[in-house]
Simulated scan of single mutants.
Amino acid sequence: MSNFLIPKNEINLQTEILIADVIEDFLLTKNSSQTVRSYRNDLLSFFNRMELIFLNELAQVQFSLMVDHVMSFIRSQEKKDPFTDKVKNPSTVNRKAYALSSFFNYLIHVYNYPKNPIKQFQPHKTEKKSNTTSLTRAEAIDFLQYMQGKHRKSEADFRDYLIIIFLNIFALRRAEVVGLKWDDINFSKNSINVYQKGGTTKLLLTDKRGN
């Protein structure tokens, strides 16, 4: 078996095409100008680090070495807390990894590159921030009072009122609320039987006012 990534009779990667030009062609597949700008910087930084200019030079790099180069580049982008060793810029590191992964997938489909050297990369965990505007305390109270005022008009209104209560007062997850049935609510004992993730259940006791 050859030590090279591509057999010698493979034409696409053996021609002297500038990697920078291939990057620009790849970026035409992206819609966001911010993504284009970030990906361009990330990709050029990587290939400049490797001192690769043409595709035929890329074809001569053994795949195992390419994996090492890619992972070394990713690790070099990490900023770690000196005391906890925790990565302080996980989103930035993940983005650079995604840029490389997307580009190598492009090479696979367009230039017959064999496989993605960053396929096994495990993204860093990042904090998920909601873009949804939260209700103010006054708005939440007004909404609950509105629902309480109509909850006796029909079973559907009562159900909707209970859903709001379960989400806001008991802090149930959406999936937990969706899984509730009328039989799970015991009004005489003021309790709720909630089915949790993994098939387990928990019993919630309400106050004795029946609210």
Rank of each mutant, 00 (worst) to 15 (best):
D183F: 14
L135K: 15
D21Q: 12
N168M: 14
V87Q: 04
M71E: 13
I53R: 09
N56G: 08
A175T: 14
K208P: 02
N193T: 14
Y113W: 15
S33A: 05
T206M: 14
F158M: 05
N48I: 03
Y161M: 03
S134F: 08
L28T: 06
I192K: 08
K150A: 00
L167T: 07
N31P: 01
F143W: 14
Y111G: 12
V36Y: 00
N186V: 04
L167V: 11
F26H: 06
N112F: 13
G210F: 02
K129Y: 09
N105K: 10
L205Y: 15
L172A: 02
F83H: 13
M71I: 10
I185A: 08
L18V: 04
F47S: 00
P123K: 08
E16Y: 04
I17F: 04
I192Y: 03
P117E: 04
N41D: 14
D21N: 12
S101W: 01
L204M: 15
M66W: 01
L162H: 05
T84L: 11
G179S: 10
L107V: 06
A175K: 12
V67D: 01
N31V: 04
N105R: 08
V110G: 02
N116L: 14
T92G: 02
Q148K: 15
F104T: 06
S188N: 06
K129T: 12
L28K: 10
N211I: 13
L144Y: 02
I165N: 05
D85S: 14
D42S: 05
E51C: 05
A99V: 07
L135F: 15
S76R: 10
L65Y: 12
R40A: 00
S101C: 10
F143D: 03
N9W: 07
V67H: 01
R152N: 12
K30H: 10
N31S: 08
L5D: 01
D21I: 04
V178Q: 07
G210E: 02
E139M: 12
Q34V: 00
I141Y: 04
R152Y: 11
K197H: 09
L180K: 08
I165Q: 10
V87W: 03
I163E: 04
L203C: 14
K125D: 03
L52Q: 06
V70C: 14
A156V: 07
L205K: 15
E24I: 11
I169W: 15
R173I: 11
L13P: 01
T126E: 12
E155K: 07
A97D: 01
K96I: 05
